[in-house]
Amino acid sequence: MASDVILELRDVEAGYGKAALVLRGLSVSVPRGTVVCLVGPNGAGKSTVLKVASGLLKPRAGAILLGGEDVTGRGPQALLREGLSHVLQGHSVFPEMTVEENVMLGGYTVRDQSSLAERAEFVRSVFPVVAEKWSTVAGLLSGGQQKQVEFARALMVTPDVVLLDEPSMGLDPKRTTTVFEQVARMRDAGVAVLLVEQNARRALEMADIGCVLDLGRVFATGPARELLADPKLSDLYLGGRPATA
């Protein structure tokens, strides 16, 4: 149902400067309370989708709808106020500040102090590591723990949808698993997630919906488990089928 869709990119064309288009008529829908994972080869346009969705890059054609409202052309700050958070690629914590200070920066637009305190308690409950390390200097945390701080900060504004760009980048397998578990926690808290991830197979195992991009277009989309089970897609885009015992 259309009313279940919180974020929609409709027939979007986008590129950088005067260069050729990166996205060529791309359409993606993110239902409420789901994880939608974008996968595909390098250069397919995955991160560009997130930049367009968050207002960092204005599309040349097409529309972006948030909660059914056309928000095409609005900037990141306006979209943040309207319920969309974007966690960028790489680490963005302030290493000399405490976890508490980093997280509370996410609520800088919240004026009501009681609401701010309630939100801080909520993100502490969603991410136990954040609560445990609340007074710790963020630079002392592992990469996976820092990523959870970024997630918590993004949830301080009560977003309806969070965009995640390569959250497992630079992490070892154990910490990658932890990060994906935290993405699932966000979904369980009622937040929709649009995720870009190079670790395609692992991400699709956790996601609800998969969307395979190629050359700026949607090549295939559907339930994530079905995409994983498709041998053609597996060979072309997921690094081949996993070995069996």
Rank of each mutant, 00 (worst) to 15 (best):
A207T: 12
S115N: 07
R185K: 15
A78R: 15
F151M: 15
R187L: 01
S27F: 02
A184M: 10
N199F: 12
R187W: 03
Y237S: 06
A245W: 09
A203V: 04
S3Q: 13
E13T: 09
A20Y: 03
P59G: 06
V49H: 11
N42V: 09
D188F: 03
D70G: 07
P242L: 13
V161P: 07
L56F: 15
I209R: 12
R202F: 06
G67D: 08
P159M: 05
V39F: 03
D11V: 03
L105I: 15
T176K: 14
A61K: 14
M1Q: 07
D11Q: 12
S54R: 04
L213P: 08
P242Q: 13
V149A: 10
T178N: 06
E101Y: 04
P231Y: 00
G17H: 09
L236T: 15
K133F: 08
V12P: 07
L80P: 00
G73R: 02
D214W: 01
M104Y: 04
L163W: 01
V35Q: 03
E8I: 01
G33I: 05
L57Y: 01
G25Y: 03
R185S: 15
V36S: 07
A189V: 06
N199V: 04
V5H: 04
S125H: 07
V49E: 05
G45E: 12
L116A: 12
C211Y: 01
S3G: 04
L21V: 03
Q182P: 01
K46P: 04
E69A: 13
L38Y: 12
A200E: 11
V36Y: 06
A61Q: 10
G40S: 11
P231R: 13
K174E: 08
F94T: 09
E13V: 12
M104P: 00
V137H: 01
E96K: 02
D188L: 03
A229P: 00
T176P: 10
R185I: 03
V35F: 04
G17L: 08
V103S: 05
R24I: 00
S54E: 03
A154Y: 05
D214R: 05
S135D: 15
L9Q: 02
R185G: 00
A138Q: 05
T136F: 02
R217F: 00
E96I: 00
Q77Y: 13
G216R: 04
A78E: 15
R124F: 06
L79W: 13
A138T: 06
L38K: 10
A78Q: 15
F151Y: 08
A189Y: 08
H91E: 14
A189F: 07
G222V: 05
A53Y: 05
Y108M: 10
V28A: 08
V196E: 11
E100L: 11
Q198G: 02
W134H: 05
A192K: 01
G107Y: 06
A154M: 04
A207E: 03
Q77H: 13
E118N: 14
A138F: 05
V39A: 04
A220M: 08
R24D: 06
R74S: 05
F94V: 13
P95L: 03
P31C: 12
A44F: 13
F94I: 13
E13R: 02
M169P: 00
L116I: 07
V149S: 11
G62I: 09
V218C: 05
I6Q: 02
S234T: 11
A224N: 04
A78T: 14
M104N: 07
A2Y: 00
P31K: 09
L88A: 14
A220H: 09
E8Q: 14
R217K: 13
G239N: 10
G62Y: 06
E226Q: 14
